[in-house]
Design a protein around this nucleic acid. Structure first.
Lengths: 223, 223
DNA sequence: ATGACCTGATACGTCGGAGGTCTTGAGCGA
DNA sequence: TCGCTCAAGACCTCCGACGTATCAGGTCAT
């Protein structure tokens, strides 16, 4: 195994074992390199790799720190990975979302706050009659994220965020706007919201399922 | 933005845009560094980072290649990330698994092959009366993976694989063996298998839910 | 006394070059 | 034809130097 890979493992072990805790500062590059028995260059490769997936936070002129290691932060790297997938696997991602999102929406029905409901309503109202693709993507993202956040499970939230991140959604919406599906999709958003307001978990789950299934169906017919 | 980060973005763009396809070979380090306008050292940091998350495959003496970009491969990096999470977030991961796994098991009920069923049965039979923790973990992993693979969705499979990877499972089993939960858990495995053999998707879903809920319940009581 | 500003120490960022090691494939001999 | 040798090519590791950003402490004007 290459020295850099060893370094990655050792740093990982230091964190997993608790020797390094979230927020802790690592020894400076030259010292850490000496401790781990490799050159500064090779160590930097290890640090850079861990920083890409948000394990470490490198601040020039200051030092290198362990991040908070929050699920939200770490799963952020997921969207980076998802961006690499080609269209032919979008359906598989959507199928997973179809499993997770209804469950999350049902959970949210029991926990979502009144003010969050009002915020979602206001957000839907804000969208004009002829919104741009960018607006639709942003609105869609915000809407679902707002609901999933109210599920109370940050792992679930981050996962859904990563699975159907901006890129994937943009691809889908770009196609949707070419059809007449925009209106229906927005109406489904309102139906989900109404179910949440009624605290009707099963209705919320079903609407969420319908919502994603309709996108899935459309997508399947065009690929 | 640092030159290394720029390089990461540029390489990512080359792949996403299709200029580099899965399996393609990158220009050699010195050339690519010259093309992107940075030093070889800095480029290596970018390549190393992308190789940690399985976007690139670096082979010493040969060259650097774009991986297959299979969901399975890319989501493998997920387990690396999950390893960093502390015990207090295990419950959230388990909650997500509780959503995904029953759905996957239900899907598998409709698609799993006879020989796969036989293989799972044989595997359960192989486990003796007093298995070690390592055997239990390996068996548990194999059992659930075998089922989820039969769901036919590789993203779902990889995701579950990553979410409840070896580390998480080991932590749980190490605790479980201290109680009398081993026998019950193995019986639940057999019940899931029986439902699959009956092609009874709903029964399979329910048994899977019960199975994970019982682990969840136990875990909640001990944390 | 308080605030802004300057400055030195510190730590990460980038670079170029020098050897080392591994893989591959062409070339050679049995 | 098969197996071996070996040289070219590509990645691996390291070193030393310099650039750049941050922070802490001191200085000076208010």
């Amino acid at each position: 195994m290459a020295v850099t890979d060893e370094a990655i493992e050792k740093i990982k072990d230091m964190i997993v074992s608790g020797a390094l805790r979230p927020g802790d500062r690592l020894p400076k590059e030259s010292e850490l390199a000496a401790d781990l028995g490799l050159s500064r260059n090779s160590l930097r490769e290890a640090v850079r790799a861990l920083s890409l997936i948000r394990i470490l936070d490198v601040r020039q002129g200051d030092g290198t720190y362990v991040t908070s290691l929050d699920p939200q932060l770490l799963l952020e790297a997921l969207s980076f990975v998802v961006d690499f997938h080609r269209d032919d696997t979008v359906l598989e991602f959507l199928a997973v979302r179809r499993i997770l999102e209804p469950a999350a929406t049902a959970m949210a029905a029991l926990r979502i706050s009144e003010q969050q409901l009002d915020a979602l309503t206001a957000q839907l109202d804000k969208l004009g009659d002829d919104p741009s693709v960018e607006d639709l993507v942003a609105c869609d993202l915000e809407f679902h994220r707002g609901i999933v956040q109210s599920s109370g499970n940050s792992v679930l939230c981050s996962l859904l965020d990563g699975l159907s991140g901006p890129t994937t959604r943009a691809r889908i919406w770009r196609g949707l706007t070419q059809e007449d599906a925009v209106g229906r999709t927005l109406r489904e958003h309102r139906a989900i919201l109404a179910a949440l307001r009624d605290r009707d978990a099963e209705a919320a789950r079903s609407w969420a399922t319908v919502h994603i299934a309709s996108v899935e169906q459309w997508l399947r017919s065009t690929l």
